[in-house]
Design a protein around this nucleic acid. Structure first.
Length: 366
DNA sequence: AAGTCGGGGCA
DNA sequence: TGCCCAGACTT
């Protein structure tokens, strides 16, 4: 069976008509046809990378309140950005956000570049985000392809090539369909349709404005698309993490390496995270040597903390050590903090789980 | 092309 | 549980 490509005019008209009647009111979105603030578009697009609209909402509002312009953000310390970003994940985004704000102030005189090529030179802005900002904020007819639009296109044309190899043909189909008029609204409309109608499972084709031109709908095998490469199994890593408390109720925090997993974020001292489990006694001895810490006191085991990262599971055994002495050891990048002050530190969700475990009355054994 | 990089919501 | 999400960056 052969299918005919829908005309760009017919397709985009269906999409834009749907948008005029169904556009969601989102904090970073202007009225249909209106150009929003590029700073708002940029900030929202970075936050929305691999992150849902519902999750981003409160973070977007808080960032705009604290840093209303790109100049404000560029002037802020990176640690402040990380503290407010804490919990949103993919912390390289926060580091690149800060770098990007500085670059815009230094290299573009504080004005957002208004085209895809210049946007691509900025840290944290890749092919998708450059096209999205360019079309949404500057009304340029760029080809915007995110995960939602990938799924829509793959279903419209029943693309059997598996992702990520399918990215190229998908982009070609998308380019054919992208209109010159209202490109920003068109892109946002397709993303809305992907998020609410053309969902990964149980797509609501009865509500879809373009189901009439969808070959997967015609064949009834929508959920087969997009085809994806099989994923690797996640190994489990384990470790012991220490809540070291000194006189006055202060607890030891240290900063992680600038790059890599949870880069630049704060943590409680812990053993390395490896597949082979390590005993708390051995972990403490390692910490004494590596950190030069003279730690002593009885160890109290708290409830195991489980956490899943993108490519491994983690099991951390929290151990509480209350020392009957003053917090007189000072390591570079570490600080003694009272738990009431934790909100002012860049603690990722994993570390907040450790706080919850330690502060719950339950213990494994004494 | 494959691996790294969070966290939450969903069936 | 596994899958997905307005992906970018490194190797």
């Amino acid at each position: 069976m052969t299918y005919q490509l829908p005309s760009q005019q017919e397709f985009s008209a269906r999409v834009l008509d749907w948008y005029d009647a169904n556009a969601r009111a989102l904090p970073w979105r202007s009225l249909p046809g209106q150009r929003p603030d590029p700073y708002h578009v940029w900030l929202s697009e970075i936050m929305l990378q691999q992150t849902t609209v519902v999750t981003v909402g409160p973070y977007f509002d808080k960032f705009l309140t604290l840093w209303p312009t790109v100049q404000h953000m560029a002037a802020a310390p990176l640690d402040d950005i990380l503290t407010v970003w804490a919990g949103l994940g993919y912390y390289a985004r926060a580091r690149n956000l800060h770098k990007c704000a500085i670059d815009i102030c230094d290299k573009f005189a504080g004005t957002f570049p208004n085209n895809r090529e210049d946007l691509l030179t900025l840290p944290g802005i890749g092919p998708y985000t450059a096209a999205a900002i360019s079309s949404i904020a500057f009304d340029r007819a760029e080809v915007v392809v995110d995960g939602n639009i990938e799924r829509i296109i793959a279903r419209l044309f029943r693309i059997d090539t598996a992702l990520p190899a399918a990215k190229k043909p998908i982009t070609e189909y998308a380019a054919h369909l992208t209109p010159c008029g209202r490109p920003g609204d068109y892109a946002q409309a397709l993303m809305d349709i992907g998020a609410t109608i053309c969902t990964p499972r149980n797509p609501k084709c009865a509500q879809c404005p373009v189901s009439v031109t969808c070959t997967a709908f015609a064949e009834g095998d929508m959920e087969r698309y997009p085809v994806k490469a099989p994923k690797k199994a996640k190994p489990t890593r384990r470790g012991v993490i220490f809540w070291i408390e000194a006189e006055g109720g202060v607890v030891l925090l240290r900063r992680r390496e600038e790059k890599g997993l949870l880069g630049g974020m704060m943590e409680f001292p812990s053993s390395p995270w490896q597949e082979a489990a390590i005993a708390p006694d051995a972990a403490l001895e390692q910490l004494r040597e590596s950190a030069g810490l003279n730690i002593n006191g009885p160890m109290i085991h708290k409830t195991l903390v489980r956490h899943t990262f993108t490519h491994f599971h983690l099991e951390l055994q929290p151990v509480v050590l209350v020392m009957a002495q003053k917090a007189n050891l000072s390591l570079p990048g570490s600080s003694w903090v009272r738990p009431e002050e934790f909100e002012n530190y860049a603690l990722p969700t994993l570390m907040k789980k450790v706080v919850t475990s330690v502060q719950s009355p339950q213990t494994d054994f004494l």
